[in-house]
Amino acid sequence: MSYDHYIDQRKLILTVATTGGVHGKDANPNLPEQPAEIARQVRECEKLGAAIVHVHGRDEHGENDPERLQAVNDAIRDRCDDIIIQNTTGGQSPYENRVAGIRTDPPPEMASLDMGPFNRGQHIITEHTRNNIESLAREMHEKGVKPELEVFNNGHLNETYRLIEKDILDPPYYINVILGPGTFTMPRPKNLLNMVENLPAESHFNVLATGPHQLPLTTMGALLGGHVRVGMEDNLYFERGEPAQSNAQLVERSTEIIDRLDRDLATPDEAREMLGME
């Protein structure tokens, strides 16, 4: 994908990441944690034009629990029309826990696939060995789950090429370019340009940027012909010092910007077709 795709008015896939695994209601009480409240917010975002929802599961204390993905998936299916469910397989729990993201019944249409490890704070690391990544990719392939390739830094792009060369992934490759603190790619416009210029052929890219970088860098991603992910997993604030009221508030702002940039949003069905899911 490229600027040409922007000029050609290729449709934009909007993803909402409502919850995540990092923050809780103590950081922003509007962040949804329980299945019913997640589903309510997802429905609002679907009505605004989100085609994909990225999902995490939390227990009754708001702590991470991949086993709760089933309940969240069920609640979203009950309340929403057609939004594509993308479960997480990330996080700091062992592989045996994280694989629950693709073992729901039915399996999700999509799942995240981290391209390598990264640090969280002083002692936490998300441990993704090549062996585990390949095992997840193969099980996704068997189940017909489309992976979103999570590229947290430049090195993870090398790992993406490695998986392509090993013929483990099917094109088109859906690559989530992630910019943020720590071991993520440093959130600067030039770094996003560099990442986009080095993407594999036959790929679509999505931009995820954390905190105050969400608005400018996802907008830049839209101008570069890419797709956009917003939501409270990545950003708890609507403006500096003003906590987000809901995921829909962030989604609505992005839809307005995307519209002003003269790009149309892809429906879930159009997103499926663009990503080779049908």
Binding site: G62, E63, N64, Q92
Partner: peptide, 11 residues
């Protein structure tokens, strides 16, 4: 004397 984030709660 603060709530703990979900990730930190694992520790």
């Amino acid at each position: 004397e603060e709530f703990v984030s979900p990730m930190k709660a694992d520790i």
